[in-house]
């Protein structure tokens, strides 16, 4: 268990490298949006890492960045169309943050620094590791913000058309706990992120000692 956490946290794209901030703060107003956005990014990352590691021999050095951006943009467009067709409510909420995956520094960064230099198997593993770490981070942010901001945890609501279940729970009895809507507002995203980063820093120092 400790090993898994270490594997996911050591190079966590969001908390350690601070990449991909823009969707991380924008869509994590509830748990469901958070982890689904993470999964979307992971899917694009996986596909682009596979393609890049297969094609990198044929792409000349000074054409690398434009070529990789085009590869990523193609997969993002596919994802966008799929979401629009099958889970429309979700694609409405995530809105422009789906096409914005194109300019997510995580994906281009991994393509340039890892997938273009490694074999297929390593690239897939790398994409899974980074993608899972990112999903976990987004889920955590969404969890905290939804719990404090609206006193609920949404596991499946917008994708219920696809899965057939609605899973949305109230956590505390309404009389005991007054939710603070600040946390689901844009400003709350900055606060949550700052606090989580600070607490992670504290825990890491504890590790060293």
């Amino acid at each position: 268990m400790k090993k898994i956490i270490k594997w996911l946290m050591d190079e966590n794209p969001l908390f350690v490298l601070c990449l991909g901030l823009c969707p991380a703060l924008a869509v994590t107003t509830n748990f469901e949006n958070g982890y689904l956005m993470g999964l979307c990014v992971m899917m694009v990352l996986l596909l682009s890492n596979i393609t890049v590691s297969l094609l990198s021999r044929f792409i000349s050095d000074h054409m690398r960045v434009p070529a990789y951006i085009m590869i990523i943009a193609t997969f993002v467009t596919i994802l966008e169309l799929l979401l629009q067709t099958y889970v429309e409510p979700l694609s409405k909420v995530l809105g422009i943050y789906i096409p914005l995956i194109v300019v997510n520094c995580i994906i281009l960064g991994r393509a340039l620094s890892y997938a273009s230099k490694h074999k297929l198997k390593d690239s897939i593993l790398d994409a899974l590791k980074i993608g899972l770490g990112y999903t976990l981070a987004l889920g955590l942010l969404g969890f905290i913000r939804e719990l404090i901001g609206s006193n609920t945890i949404t596991i499946m609501d917008r994708i219920s058309g696809l899965t057939g279940y609605v899973m949305k729970y109230e956590v505390f009895p309404t009389n005991d706990f007054i939710p603070n809507a600040l946390f689901t507002s844009p400003a709350g995203a900055f606060l949550t992120m700052g606090l989580v980063l600070g607490i992670i820093n504290m825990l890491r120092k504890g590790d060293v000692k």
């Binding site: 601070c18 400003a187 606060l191 700052g194 980063l197 600070g198 820093n201 504290m202 120092k205």
Partner: peptide
């Protein structure tokens, strides 16, 4: 500032 909050964490809180 507390050491763990220096750098990015406090920047986020300022942005907040």
């Amino acid at each position: 500032i507390i050491r763990s909050f220096r750098g990015l964490p406090i920047a986020f809180i300022t942005a907040f």
